[in-house]
Structures are given as structure tokens and as C-alpha cells.
Amino acid sequence: MTAQPSANDQPPIRITTPNELVSLIPYLIGHHPADSLVLLGCDATKVIVTVRLGLGDPTNAWAQIVPNLARSGVITGHLVGYGSAARVGPHIDTAHAALTLNDIASSAPVRVEHGRIYATGTGAGPGDLASSHADEGVRVDPHTAAAARAVVEGMVALPSRDAIHTLVAPTGPAEQAAMRSAVARARSAGAPVTGEAAVQAADAAVTDALGSYRTGDRLTDDDVARLTLLLTDEQARDAVLARDEDDDASIALWTDVTRRADASLVAEPACILFVAAWLARRAPLAWAALDRARDAEPGHRLTRLLSAMVWNGISPDQLAEVLRRRRSDASHP
């Protein structure tokens, strides 16, 4: 099995043992997991999707998730549980059964607890766990070649899932008050515009903003206010989404705007951040952005649409194709 770094022009990271798999998972999901079951879905050569459910989530969720993975081209699944055998076991059993039911091959699931890897008894035991000491487990060695490659390629493993959500958390009370004032100034100046004028203004604003973030600068409060008001126009927002940009500057821009946006205007930039992060194969940041959009505006239509697309197994490449078609349709009315 191999895993592709965020930069797709780099050679894949090869994974050959359960320990290498366990050492790499924090980089694939963006944080060190706990009380979770992680499923890596692979095509014939590489990991194409990573799914993490908390042990507090209903086990029957796997019956919904796995068929969508099969439709997305997953042919092999690798399950790693984090926590006690009593808590991990029901999730592994249900997920493994769902893989089998959907004709997805599965390696033998393993469980991680207190820094050791254990065979679970579901399926055949992995080679480095099938020993007379299987009950004692095998110590996790985080310093594998796979983990080292992940670090070299710029992949990051934060301490916890909560740490990812802090990346998109709103700024403090003083900053939010300043942003409300900036939004009021923008409205007084005639924002937001709508229709084609909004599309052109948003495109120009994003182009200028990306130039700033590529040189280490950032938007002023007034810039953020004007941009987020432009995004309230659906045509303008969709045109920005269709730009199909996933580089570091795009992610830095939309992360910053998502954090600083007025609470009434945060859902649109958070959705754009989701798309940029998903295209860049930074799923944990993408999910955090979607959670931020959902919390800011429950029932937000685009947030519901993007959530449904992901739960139905859309891959970054498939999402990129959707955006390319939208761009093409927009240029040939």
C-alpha cells in the first residue's frame, strides 16, 4: 500500500507493516487519534480516502459509509482502532462486516492502546503481530521511514482533533467587534453589490488577496468585510469556488478569512476553505471548516450539499472534475 503526499508530483509513501501504517495515520488524518476507528480506503495502488469515526458515534454509520467508498473506487480497506478492546471491538466488527458485504477486501484490523499495537482477532493476524507474544502487543515505533517521509513532505500531525478545530476557531471578542465595525463601514459604502458586478469584484478581490498571502501579508479588516459581503451573492461565491485553487496561499487566505469573518458571514468562506482543503487532500482541515460553517449557520444550503457529497464518497479528484465542469458551463452559457 502507498499513500500520496499532498504534493502529487512527489513519489508515494510506501507502507508495508502495521507499525508503518500506525505511524503514518496521524499525518493522514492531521492529528493523533484517540477513541476512534480509522479506515483507510485504497484502490489498486494507493490510499484514496481516509475515514475516522469516534467510538461514541453509532456503529451502524459504517453501513452507510462503506457502500459510498465502494462507489468511489475503494477495493481494499485497512482498519485501525484506538482504545480498549471493549470499545473498539463493536466498531471493527461492524466496519469489517460492511467491507465484506460490499466486496471490499480487508487487511486484518489492528488496535492501538497505550502505545502498543494489538491484533483484534478479526481476520488473519498481521505478520509482525502473529507471534507467541500477540497478547502483549507490539510497541508502536513512531520513527518509521513512512512517518519520516510524511514530515519531509510537510504533512503535520497535531496533538488532537480539537487542535485542528482551533485552526478555524473565531478570533477573540475585540477582533470580532472590530470586524463588525468594518462590515458596517462596508455596508455604508454600498456593499454588497450583486450579479455580474459581484462576480467581477469578487474575482478581482480574491486575485489581489492571494497575491498578498503569497508574500506573507494578510487582508485588513475592511478587506475581509468587503470580500465576505461579496460572497453573500450566490453567483460570486460560486465563481470563487470554481477557481479550483488548492495551493498554500489559498488555504492560508480562506483559513484567515474564516477565522476573522463576522459571525453572520462566516459560512461562505468556510465552505470555500472546505473545498480548497479537500482538493489539497487536507481532509481534517476540510472537515473542521465544514463544522465551522454548520455551527455558524445551521441549515446552510451549500454546507449541506458539500456534506452530502463527502458522505457519498466524492474524492478530491472527483470534486475537481465537478468544479471544472461548472467552470466550463459558466464560460459557455
Rank of each mutant, 00 (worst) to 15 (best):
T194L: 13
R187P: 00
A174H: 12
T166H: 13
A202P: 13
A163E: 12
R180G: 09
T166Q: 14
H165Q: 12
V193F: 01
S181D: 15
T207K: 03
T171N: 04
A204D: 07
R187A: 13
A169Y: 07
V168D: 11
A198G: 10
A198P: 10
R187N: 08
A204I: 02
L210D: 01
V206E: 07
V183W: 08
A209N: 04
A197F: 04
A197W: 01
A169C: 12
E196D: 14
A191R: 11
T166E: 13
A201H: 08
A198W: 00
R161S: 13
A202C: 08
A184Y: 02
G190S: 07
S181E: 15
S188F: 05
T194S: 15
A186S: 14
M179Y: 07
A182C: 01
P170H: 05
A186G: 06
E196W: 01
R180Q: 09
S212P: 02
T166D: 12
H165E: 14
V168F: 06
Q176S: 05
R180I: 01
R161L: 11
Q200V: 04
V168Y: 09
R185Q: 13
I164T: 03
A209I: 02
A201F: 00
P170G: 05
V193A: 14
A189Q: 15
V183C: 02
G195F: 00
G195M: 01
S212E: 12
A178T: 06
H165R: 15
A177N: 08
T171Y: 03
R180V: 06
P173S: 10
A182S: 06
A204L: 12
T207C: 00
I164E: 03
S212Y: 04
M179C: 03
A163L: 06
P192V: 07
S160Q: 09
A205P: 06
V193P: 10
G195A: 02
V168E: 11
